[in-house]
Amino acid sequence: MSIALLDLCRWRLVPLLLGLLLNGCASLDYYAQLGQGQLALLSAREPVDKLLADPTRDAELKRRLALAQQARDFASRTLQLPDNRSYRLYADLERPYVVWNVFATPELSLAPLTHCFPIAGCVAYRGFYQQGRARGSAALLQERGLDTYVAGIEAYSTLGWFADPILNTMLRWGDERLAAVIFHELAHQQLYVADDTAFNESFASFVERQGLRQWRTARGLAPLAADEERQRRQFTELILASRERLQVLYGSVVSDEQKRQGKAAEFSRLRQDYVALRDSQWQGDTRYDAWINAPLNNARLLPFGLYDQWVDAFAGLFEQADGDWSRFYQRAAELAELPAEERDRALRALAASR
């Protein structure tokens, strides 16, 4: 979920409220929980500098937040990301994730069920501030015969409408992951295209990864372990290859029952290919075991196509800009202005160039 839809304290959101009312009463409950969740988040914020100066606050929390401020400064100074109050505040939501996103696809298709919102446009998921609501929504979709996947999300961007805080949910991971999330979410503030989730998430993922490389260099740390990056790329490629085979299967003229059998066989193959890759090239590293051993369906594969589809394309664009962030953002913005089909062709060409 990329943007909050309700906040009665902000006059700028009056047009959004009108848009929501036009969507009909059936949607009001969903939008109400969005508004309540966002307002609760905003109410929980406190300035990081004030927290750091408080001798009664937890020392480890203060260490993590001090590091986050260094990453925040680096994001604007070096990565040339927006310089505003976002991630200068902290909010403890007292839960492990800020929202839970529900992804859904038809049983025999990889096409996502999309949801359209004012400003944010159409996205391939629906967000809920309560895990129970997300699971309930997924259950209703399953009754309609859809594949579903509920994913806990540690952070999201309001695209500059509000000062997004550092959340306790962002502190569940290590120091580098914390910096990476800040880079990722600020990238959404830098550039966002309505109705193109793959573009937005791939852009932010590239900024996150390249930013993290430069962050490590600036701190005198060794480059990211080649094995770790290679494993992530190989795992992603494994999932995307499975998606491609499923796409061919679902587009074929065989019966639905044959497609179901082929789907089951493909997920079995995916697990076998994963085990072979892990044991032959990763020295038995099990970091992705939990994901691969969970129930697999079309919806579970969906985020890979969204978050990774154009990362190589943006890497190519960054190379063409000679590593200059300002030029890179300018060229990415030019891509964003293209009609959707032309934009995809340009991205495919950039990816192929690498």
Rank of each mutant, 00 (worst) to 15 (best):
L246W: 11
L141F: 11
Q272G: 03
R45N: 08
I239T: 01
D58Q: 04
W291L: 15
R45D: 03
G211H: 07
A163W: 00
A66K: 10
L28M: 14
A163F: 01
I292K: 07
L191N: 07
N23K: 11
Q36C: 08
R126C: 09
I182R: 03
T114F: 02
A194H: 03
D344Q: 15
A315S: 13
C122S: 15
A346M: 14
E46A: 14
D29R: 15
E337V: 02
K259V: 12
N200F: 01
W291E: 15
G305Y: 00
R269G: 02
R177L: 04
A204W: 06
Q36D: 12
R230A: 15
V253L: 13
L16V: 15
N293M: 09
P96C: 12
L13I: 02
R243P: 00
I153D: 00
Q80P: 03
N168A: 10
H188N: 06
A276Y: 06
L41K: 12
K50L: 13
Y192W: 12
C25W: 15
P47K: 00
F128I: 06
R271Y: 11
R12E: 15
F162S: 04
N168E: 08
L18I: 11
F203N: 00
Y90L: 08
L34M: 11
Q38P: 00
R354C: 07
Q272R: 10
T114E: 11
D175C: 01
L34Y: 09
E208G: 03
R133L: 12
F206R: 08
L335D: 04
Y97V: 06
A134H: 03
D196M: 12
R177K: 10
G262Q: 05
G174C: 07
A241P: 05
V14F: 15
M1Q: 09
L16Y: 14
L41V: 14
L302K: 09
F162D: 12
A352P: 05
S76V: 00
A218K: 10
E266C: 05
R327K: 09
